Structures are given as C-alpha cells and as structure tokens.
Amino acid sequence: MPITPEQIDAAAHKYYRDRVRRALLGAAAGPVGIVLAIWAISSIASGGFIFFWPIFVIIPTLLGGLGHIARKDEIIRNRKKELTRRARAQLGDAEAKRQLEEGEPPERDYEADFGTGLQPPHPSHPPYSPGQISRREERDRRQSHRRHNRDNPWD
C-alpha cells in the first residue's frame, strides 16, 4: 500500500499505464482480432482479397483506446485521490475509513473538469417549470391516447 506522495504518484502512473495497455490489448485480442480473423479466412476462401470491412470495427475501437490516452491527467488524478484516501484510512483517519467502508465515491471536482467536455456538468434530469410535464407523464398521456384510439377506432 503506497503511503508517501511519491509512492502514490508512482502507483497512479502505473495504474494508468496498465489501464491503457489493457484497453489496447483487449481491443486487439477481442473484437479486432476476431474480425481480422474472419476477414482473412473469407479472403483466403474466396481466392482473393475482399473489401477490408474490419476497418469499421478497428477505427471505433482504436478511438476508444485513444480516449484513455487523452484522459491521462483525469485518470491519474482520480487514482491519486483514491490511493490517498486508502493511505489515510490505513494510517487511522476515521473519515477516510468510513468512506471506504460505505463505498462512498470521492467528491467530484466539477470546477477542475469544467471546459474539458462539450457540456458543463448538469443534473441527470432537468428541472421542470410549473407548466411543463415530466417525460413519464407525457409517455402515460400518449399511451392512454393510443389505447383510446385502439379501443374506439370510430371516435
């Protein structure tokens, strides 16, 4: 268990390298490897090269792996926070122990993340004005209308 800031920093960087390696190797051994094998077998069976359709799997998979690389600072920062909390808990900090036992996620620093995405952080559901109805109410109203039309086709 890393305790000192240098050990935590080294452990966070190692975690990041392992995570990127797993993402890229998982892509190569998983879907990319399978589609390349299917394409190669199909090309050999047909007697010539066929259209290289695995590119439609390779590109999105590669972009997903590059996403890990692009979020390097965020991944390392989050890992450092987690390792620091674990070290504090191991050293006897009651608040850190409570957070670990409850599985409480670390506090999210939205100010530091602002501007890193296309949109600022927002709640999972938008607040409604008094005149608006919720999605559930709208869905129920449409279902009721469909049910009425189905039961009374001549209305």
Rank of each mutant, 00 (worst) to 15 (best):
I8P: 00
I8V: 02
D9G: 09
D9M: 12
A10K: 12
A10Q: 06
A12S: 06
H13G: 09
K14S: 08
Y16A: 06
D18H: 12
D18R: 15
R19K: 13
V20W: 10
R21Q: 10
A23V: 11
G26K: 01
G26C: 02
A27K: 07
L36G: 02
L36Q: 07
W39Q: 03
S46F: 12
G48Q: 14
I50C: 03
F51D: 13
P54A: 09
I58Y: 03
I59G: 04
P60R: 05
T61G: 09
L62Q: 05
L63I: 13
L63A: 12
G64S: 10
G64C: 13
G65I: 05
G65M: 05
L66S: 01
G67T: 05
H68M: 14
D73I: 02
N78Y: 08
N78S: 09
R79L: 05
R79I: 03
K80H: 05
K81I: 15
K81N: 11
E82Y: 12
E82T: 11
L83F: 01
R85D: 01
R86D: 00
A87C: 02
A89N: 01
G92I: 07
K97H: 08
E102C: 09
P106K: 04
R108G: 03
R108N: 08
F114G: 00
F114E: 04
G115A: 00
T116E: 10
G117D: 02
L118P: 00
P123M: 10
H125R: 14
Y128N: 11
P130K: 10
P130Y: 08
G131F: 14
Q132G: 01
S134D: 06
R135L: 15
E137Q: 08
R142I: 15
Q143H: 15
R146A: 12
H148M: 14
H148I: 15
R150M: 10
D151C: 11
D155Y: 13
D155H: 10
